[in-house]
Simulated scan of single mutants.
Amino acid sequence: MTRWLTEAVPRGRIAAFRTVIYLFVAADLVVFTPWVRTRASVPGELYQPLLVGRLLPLPTPTPTVVAVIFWVLLLAAVLAASGRAPRLLGWTVCALYLEWMIIAMSYGKVDHDRFGLLVALAVLPTAGRARHGDTTRTEAGGWALRVTQIAVICTYFLAAFAKLRFGGLDWLTGSVLARAIIRRGTDLADLVAQVPYLLIVAQFGIVAFELLSPVVFLLPARWRLAMVGFFYSFHVVTIATITISFAPHLAAMTSFLPLERVRPLGWARRLAGRDPVDVDTASAPPAQSSPGDQAPVVGRPAGP
Rank of each mutant, 00 (worst) to 15 (best):
F256A: 04
A208R: 00
L164S: 06
V216N: 01
S175M: 06
G53W: 08
W35L: 08
R39N: 06
T241S: 14
D275N: 11
A272V: 05
G44A: 15
L73I: 05
F157T: 11
R129F: 02
R131S: 14
F17R: 12
T2Y: 10
R224A: 01
M227L: 15
L58G: 05
A302K: 02
L55I: 10
L212K: 12
T60G: 01
G167N: 11
V42A: 10
V237L: 15
A302M: 04
W100P: 13
G53K: 12
V36E: 08
D275R: 13
H235I: 03
S245I: 03
R270T: 10
R131D: 15
A180S: 13
A193E: 01
L73V: 06
L56W: 07
L74V: 01
V195R: 08
R183T: 14
L50H: 04
L218H: 08
A122R: 08
L51W: 15
A202E: 07
R165L: 13
G229S: 12
M101H: 04
M1G: 13
T138L: 04
P248N: 09
R184K: 14
G44S: 15
V119R: 00
L58Y: 07
S283E: 15
A193I: 02
S82N: 08
M227S: 09
G83Q: 06
G142F: 06
F17C: 11
L164D: 09
P264F: 03
A226Y: 03
P61D: 02
W35E: 11
R37I: 05
L212H: 08
E7G: 10
L145P: 10
S82K: 01
L250P: 10
I206L: 15
L177V: 04
L198D: 06
I242A: 11
A160G: 14
A302E: 11
A252V: 13
F161N: 04
A159Q: 02
S255A: 15
F32L: 09
A180P: 02
P61N: 02
L117S: 02
E7V: 03
L58M: 14
P59K: 02
D187R: 15
V216Q: 01
A40H: 01
G185S: 09
G90D: 10
V9S: 08
H112I: 14
L50K: 02
Q288Y: 03
E260V: 07
I244R: 09
H132F: 03
L5Y: 10
K109P: 00
A40Y: 01
P276R: 11
A120C: 04
A252I: 12
A76H: 09
